[in-house]
């Protein structure tokens, strides 16, 4: 008998009475409100700024200009982008004076450069969560996982219209249970730790700075 069979046999032998399924929808219905896009954007912004992220209100036409200003401001000359995405292509075409490094090959071929020589990256967010000030990223073959993790500065483009009230609403309305990517991510600020004497410090292992370009939010 394998360990699997022995464990399952022990569990199956226990006298367990089935319990009623929890009504999660009802709890959210009674305990969480729904807001309009402007209110959700404001709540999202308040929460993620509280977690030390930097948020800039932009429009579909002005975000590239704002990105350029942010990079100049932080004296960043090189940006990791996903060339096969809309925002990546536009950054490559429109960011004068910035070296746009495309994530165009398997990480094994350039891991050293990723860890030592990429000061910043640009990705899109799939959607966001107002309640907790959370970005949702679904990395894929075009915009891989490490883009939002290794570079010290992570810049995210988010459309305000995609902000949900709650995490529950996000997964329900988008049908996440029917298909998740290999790695779905919720990101709610720059990397941090309070492991030394409960003193909060930013830039633990992930990005030291998280910058959100919030598109469509009333300025």
């Amino acid at each position: 008998m394998s360990a699997r069979d022995r464990i399952l046999a022990k569990l199956n032998a226990a006298p367990v009475l089935p319990k009623a399924a929890p009504d999660i929808a009802a709890w959210y219905q009674t305990h969480r409100g729904t807001e309009n896009t402007t209110e959700k954007a404001a709540r999202f912004r308040g929460c993620i700024e509280f977690a030390h992220a930097e948020v800039h209100a932009v429009s579909p036409t002005s975000w590239l200009q704002k990105l350029s200003e942010v990079l100049a401001d932080k004296q960043i000359g090189k940006l990791l982008v996903a060339p096969d995405t809309d925002q990546g292509a536009r950054a490559i075409a429109g960011l004068g004076g910035i070296e746009c490094r495309g994530y165009d090959s398997r990480i094994e071929e350039w891991k050293e450069e990723m860890f030592h020589d990429i000061p910043a990256s640009l990705t899109a967010a799939r959607c966001a969560i107002a309640e907790t000030g959370t970005l949702v990223l679904w990395p894929d073959e075009h915009e891989p996982r490490l883009m939002s993790l290794v570079p010290p500065v992570h810049i995210v483009l988010l459309a305000a219209a995609t902000i949900h009230n709650t995490f529950y609403e996000a997964m329900q309305s988008e049908g996440w249970a029917n298909g998740l990517p290999t790695n779905a991510l919720l990101i709610s600020g720059p990397s941090k730790t309070a492991d030394i004497q409960v003193t909060l410090a930013y830039g633990a292992h992930g990005p030291k700075e998280l910058i959100v370009l919030l598109m469509g939010e009333a300025a």
Partner: peptide
Amino acid sequence: NISTYFNMISGP
């Protein structure tokens, strides 16, 4: 209210 990261892994 939430941790900085919530990492959901569904495959290699």
